[in-house]
Write a protein that binds this DNA or RNA. Structure first.
Lengths: 327, 327
DNA sequence: ATGAAAGCGCTAACAT
DNA sequence: ATGTTAGCGCTTTCAT
């Protein structure tokens, strides 16, 4: 910048003002300086400017994934894309991290070291308590996940309870009585979907069979074995509600391999509405979450958190997309 | 830091040294200071430190995706995950951006403004020339994509030519003669896969039927129509090689819907080996790319580029995974 | 409308 | 082994 100033025959103050578009500098000078800067491929050093301004213009995104698996769920990528666009549109930057095992302090560190203005955390896993602690200590953040009781951090999430309820009620309406549930209920979102499932069954006066609950972990490779075990035990079921489309599609594959007609003998409903859901055969009935809104909502809550506004949650509406797998 | 110094009764230099683990400071003092810092939740301001050191310790990742679609391809997320881990393991940060339309200068800007030490670019699209220009002007970078003739930027990519060749040869060995190709050949990687396809056909003395080439765009929703058009025209084909698993799975869905037996009447091979490929029915034969290595390779080449080492490429080996869809 | 000067928080000579 | 000092590149009072 000092070079530009010399070449333009002005002080660095003037250059700084011109480059940031201050109206104090007449347009003529401003243009001359801007032009000079461009011709020299000069850009203001963002780090230095931020240091001076005491603002990083950066938000940290922390991926809490139980394994490499989860990050490969198309759904996570959807949220990430929506976040990236939102943040970029605001002219801010996005620092991406995957939380390492037992390194929870990384999150606090990113904020306290002034790297980021706040955090967007994707997923909760078992870190609910830790997140609460961070929030109480004033770390600005917004979390994608389930609306848990007693959370003191702002949450954005789909309406998981309703999603589970809609899916299950739909299956009941189709005449299913023995509806299996596939989902890792230690995962808060899946837990709520399970509650919705239970609620729909109760409402219809159907007694839930605990043997039809499968604590399947996302991405687990043993779907096939499980289904075969069920069939071999003559554990009969006429429908499956799975907590992710990836799981649902895998289940359909396993069932078809065994020659079980879908939806003829077993109806299937998934969750997420990933791209492939409408392309597999049979096309998959599923619960859609509004991903595009997720990024904006998370950033909005994060800003409120940074501004010290009172905490609130955003529940994004959830929609049942009926396709062939449950007809 | 000045507070810590005062409280510890030493100068800021000592605190700085202690906190960065300098061996100049005796362990006793070092521990005392570290402890004090922790108790106060103090962290070194990374921005200020970087400004002083003249090094950002940050790499920029630029996603070049033709649409929202592409970023939802599980494969991209895989690379991103592998990159994140690699960068984090090195104690560096990762700044994520999605390149906006007509904002190619963003890339240069990230480096020239000192935000990042260099760029990892995912995808090439039609930006080959622009990337060349950047590289020639000394912007440090590494690109995931196809090994194009005359690239002056370092490239990491799968062996697309061989991948296309392996897939096609496999189908030929299974007795297929009329093998369709699905892929957007304006996309450099798909272009190479198409070359491999052509090469395998030639080698087997099979004449390629141009009507069997489908310039399908990743994520396009009209797969079903296309397939139906083919079947209705009695455009006969006994195999399909698709440039992504998402496409291949969609195609299988469309074919099954029409009652076409796979692999009985039509054999199918995909590309990427996404998680679902081994779970759909029939399980999908595909070409696997070693994603885990991608992140490390990209970062390695980027470092070489930063160090001013001569440009080189890394071609990651490609492997045919034979499953039921082509038996 | 512009410049001089201070200082954001830190590190690294240099000095002792 | 520790302190003093300068300065990374910028923005912003304050003064003119």
């Amino acid at each position: 910048m000092i070079d530009i100033a010399r070449m333009a025959g002005v002080s660095t103050s003037t250059v700084s003002r011109a480059l940031s578009g201050s109206s104090l500098i007449p347009e003529a000078t401003r243009n001359r300086i801007t032009e000079l800067a461009r011709s020299l491929h000069y850009r203001v050093n963002v780090g230095a400017a931020n240091l001076r301004k005491g603002d990083q213009q950066t938000i940290g995104v922390v991926l809490l994934s139980d394994s490499t698996q989860m990050i490969s769920d198309p759904f996570v990528l959807g949220i990430l894309g929506s976040l990236t666009d939102t943040v970029n549109d605001l002219g801010m930057n996005l620092l991406l991290t995957r939380l390492q095992e037992n390194r929870e302090d990384q999150m606090r560190s990113m904020v306290e070291s002034g790297q980021v203005n706040g955090l967007v955390v994707i997923g909760q896993l078992s870190l609910h308590d830790h997140l609460n602690e961070l929030a109480q200590q004033g770390i600005p953040m917004a979390v994608w996940g389930a609306n848990l009781e007693g959370a003191s951090y702002p949450v954005v999430g789909g309406d998981n309870l309703r999603g589970g309820y809609l899916a299950t009620r739909h299956l009941i309406e189709k005449g299913c009585r023995r509806i299996a549930f596939f989902g890792d209920t230690s995962h808060p979102e899946a837990g709520l979907r399970f509650q919705g499932y239970t609620q729909a069954l109760q409402e219809a006066g159907i007694e839930a069979d605990p043997r039809l609950r499968q604590h399947y972990l996302f991405g687990d490779a043993r779907i096939r074995e499980t289904i075969e075990g069920w069939l071999n035990q003559h554990l009969d079921f006429d429908a499956i509600f799975a907590c992710s489309d990836v799981t649902a599609i895998s289940l359909m594959g396993a069932l078809r391999e065994r020659g079980v007609p879908i939806p003829g003998q077993v109806r299937v409903v998934g969750y997420d509405d990933i791209l492939l859901s409408m392309h597999v055969h049979p096309t998959l009935t599923t619960v859609r979450q509004p991903i595009e809104q997720a990024g904006r909502a998370l950033v909005a809550l994060l800003f409120e958190s940074i501004a010290g506004a009172p905490r609130r949650n955003i529940v994004l509406p959830t929609e049942l997309i009926v396709r062939d797998s449950s007809l």
